[in-house]
Amino acid sequence: MCLPLLFLIIGVTLGILTDIRIPDAYSDYLSIAVLAAFDTLLGGIRAQLEKNFDDTVFLTGFFFNITLAAVLAFIGVQLGVDLYLAAVFAFGVRLFRNLAMIRRMVIDQKLLTKFRKK
């Protein structure tokens, strides 16, 4: 759980401390990259809760997801099609699925801990 949270803290800190403006032409790319990054982050947290976190899988998944999302957005722009919406949909579904699984695992662990105390 340490590595995903570390990257989240670093990213939020860099975002707050810098005053970087992204041109409108790159907003689609950035929005998909952020969505892909959140998907990977939540997947890493879920893997940690399931006790099967692998930092190599996390790091390669992080960069692969962002690259794939950017390539889809680029191809879509070249074709004149909003192809990035496919990536938004795919990463959005995965993000909410990971979040739901994390929530359920945390609730189950709390209930289990509460049950053991009785």
Rank of each mutant, 00 (worst) to 15 (best):
C2T: 04
P4D: 06
L5E: 13
L6V: 11
L6N: 01
F7W: 14
L8D: 02
I9R: 00
V12T: 08
L14Y: 09
I16K: 09
I16V: 15
L17Q: 03
T18S: 15
D19A: 05
D19G: 07
I20L: 12
I20R: 05
I22F: 02
P23M: 05
P23L: 05
D24G: 13
D28I: 03
Y29G: 01
Y29C: 00
A33Q: 12
L35F: 13
L35I: 14
A37G: 03
F38H: 07
F38P: 03
F38K: 09
L42R: 01
I45Q: 04
R46M: 08
A47C: 03
L49W: 02
L49A: 03
E50V: 06
F53Y: 13
T56H: 11
T56F: 15
V57G: 04
V57F: 11
L59S: 04
G61T: 09
G61I: 10
F63Q: 00
F64A: 08
F64E: 04
N65P: 03
N65K: 13
I66T: 03
T67H: 04
L68S: 10
L68H: 05
L68C: 06
A69E: 09
A69V: 07
A70R: 01
V71Q: 07
A73Y: 01
I75L: 14
I75C: 09
I75K: 04
V77H: 12
Q78G: 11
L79T: 06
G80L: 04
V81H: 07
L83Q: 01
L83R: 02
L83T: 09
L83A: 13
Y84T: 05
A86P: 00
A87G: 15
V88G: 03
F89E: 08
A90W: 08
F91H: 15
F91C: 02
F91E: 12
R94L: 15
L95Q: 06
F96H: 09
R97T: 13
R97G: 00
N98S: 08
N98K: 03
N98G: 01
L99R: 01
L99S: 10
L99Q: 06
A100G: 07
M101D: 09
R103M: 08
R103N: 08
R103K: 11
R104W: 05
R104L: 06
M105D: 12
I107T: 14
D108Y: 05
Q109R: 14
K110T: 11
K110M: 14
L111W: 04
L112P: 00
L112F: 13
T113P: 00
F115K: 15
R116P: 00
R116V: 11
R116D: 11
K117P: 00
K117Q: 13
